[in-house]
Write a protein that binds this DNA or RNA. Structure first.
Lengths: 199, 199, 199, 199
DNA sequence: TATGAATGAGTGTTCATTCAT
DNA sequence: TATGAATGAACACTCATTCAT
């Protein structure tokens, strides 16, 4: 029996991506075996290779498409406040960062913890995309410093931006939706802390 | 005479720990093979088992001794400011956190990224130790809120503490000693941002 | 009208045979994957099976059609000297063997080195065809011995024939067309050596 | 149970070599699976890697040690006739070639048919060794031509040498010890043909 | 006739671990 | 305490082959 009825190409690839995301999040890239992955998708291990090049390529595809979607969503979200002051833009950035990532905790996690499993050409590509994201926040801080709203020394601006991203990303780790705190509460807390940190 | 001359037991174990720290930091626990580890130590793989129980046990030992040393150092560092106000204690905490970890970046990294490679009983032990560390910061924030120095809502105090730890830990990631910024500069920046975030 | 315009069947099959010949010559039958083969032909691997039965069948087809063509060409070439003396016929055989095979080095190579990859019924068929070729030379030697032109002991005649074929076939291996030596030079050398060996 | 009593390192390696020789001879290098090999040796497949680097390395080791032994034996066998005339030396060469190889048919076979399975650095090494062997015969022919015993054109000497090796090596293929023909008979026939071919 | 997706057996190789020496 | 050789399970990946479309 060659093909199960109802299994089509794109669907299968999507299922592979979804299952890989989950397994890598749970056990890590190295600890995820392609047998587990295939099993979760409902195909045999050899069939995976009709859809992916290699295991590493699968990881790269995951990270890459996450970063692409993230950057596109960022641009869209920030377009509305492009002409505004730094404070308003920082508000928008925090709101975007938290609300976008809160539904993508697995992607966030593997984007940071599994980068090292990529080899050089692909590693560099993802790092470069991440830098574009960071640069967005850096630009906001620079604007705010220029406008006198934020008090950071010029040479510390990138450092401060990384720190803020660390703060925000940590939120995504400990926050559990459905708990006492709503996402709006989280955004409020993070916004207050971020604005305070650069005040 | 506890140790016969020529017995390198503790020395070998130390070498194993140091090499494991480096290899896990570089490639991750799963990707570190005991052959690599033995090779770096200068013994054969079978000989490792004269010093360790299992691979997982080695990881646990690393994390455990790191956490024990961390907690002990924290207690010692904070003893001097125990009776002081929250601001002074937060100052001290930031200084301690940064200066202690800055020379232990590998331990910091694997403490967060390789926790998942531990199985339940050992996983829980490390998590509990980490919680003791976090609780120290939570207590400081509670004191500060009580004294009116910090403005966080009561129910957000743990969340704020985790955020601050995220901020501080992110510092350790991007900071490169020997660059434009000194450790004192880093502490100054982090202190300002942390105090601002809870002000 | 036997073939509809646009039907590339025979063309595709020819391309498969040519590509297989080249790949088996380069890497060996076992090392040639049907994916490589399909890729070189410009189709997908599944499509191969519209033209071949199995991989082994493909090999058999290659060897078989080579041997059939060889035997036919031999008969044709030797018809002209059928009635002549053994020396003339040996001359003609050497000339035929060298000139026919020199443009078919790949076929020669795989005919000897990949025979073992055939399973029994097909293996036997090829071996039988090869024997017919060898028998032709044996008959010439027998004639020559009978006529007193060649001095080989009767019971050694097949052995001598195999040796001569070894000598001739080795020529095809080291000879590189376009070098110092022309094909006529090669035939001359081989003829002299072969005739000398049986003199 | 870690080790079967009575299985020691060098013994195991020898067993691996012997079994590999047989299996490669029977099925070819590509078609020999390491599982088959291990099974024939009586160990598990993973254990092979305590003795070999890779499968290719095993093949190289086989070919290399065969060629080394061959060259050493050649030097020893030809030492006695070093100062003699070309005819005597050619006699000795034929005798050596046949008698040495006749007990090593498997090595002869894989030395020619599995060379292509080696990658470049190792391939070159074996080819270079083989050339040293061929050069020995070429030198004898040159001497004979110089002494007026052999009648080959100067520029054809290497070609003639390769042809003779082809003749001799073909003998090893079809000869079956224990048949009508003794090894001495074979040597006699080959000697007569070889000397005739260059006369 | 070509294709993409599937299969299951198989590949060489690495793994953590054991243990007699 | 160190070693070399063993184990068996696992690894990522490839194979020839099938077949609905």
């Amino acid at each position: 029996m060659a093909r199960t009825i109802g299994s089509h190409g794109p669907t299968t690839l999507n299922a592979i991506h979804e299952a890989a995301l989950q397994l890598i999040f749970e056990h890590g890239y190295e600890a995820m075996s392609l047998r587990d992955l295939a099993g979760r998708v409902g195909i045999r291990v050899g069939s995976l290779y009709n859809h992916i090049e290699t295991k590493q390529d699968l990881l790269f595809g995951l990270l890459c498409s996450h970063m692409e979607a993230l950057l596109a969503a960022l641009d869209e979200a920030m377009a509305a406040v492009e002409a505004k002051g730094a404070k308003a833009r920082l508000h928008a950035f925090v709101r975007f960062h938290v609300s976008y990532h809160i539904t993508r905790k697995r992607e966030v996690f593997i984007s940071t913890s599994e980068l090292r499993s990529l080899d050089t050409p692909q590693y560099d590509i993802i790092v470069r995309m991440r830098r574009r994201y960071e640069d967005h926040l850096i630009a906001i801080l620079q604007q705010g410093v220029g406008e006198g709203d934020f008090s950071i020394q010029d040479q510390d601006i990138p450092a401060a931006a990384y720190n803020l991203l660390g703060l925000l990303t940590s939120s995504l780790t400990w926050f559990h939706p459905g708990g006492r705190m709503s996402v709006e509460d989280l955004i409020a807390l993070d916004t207050r802390m971020v604005l305070g940190a650069v005040a």
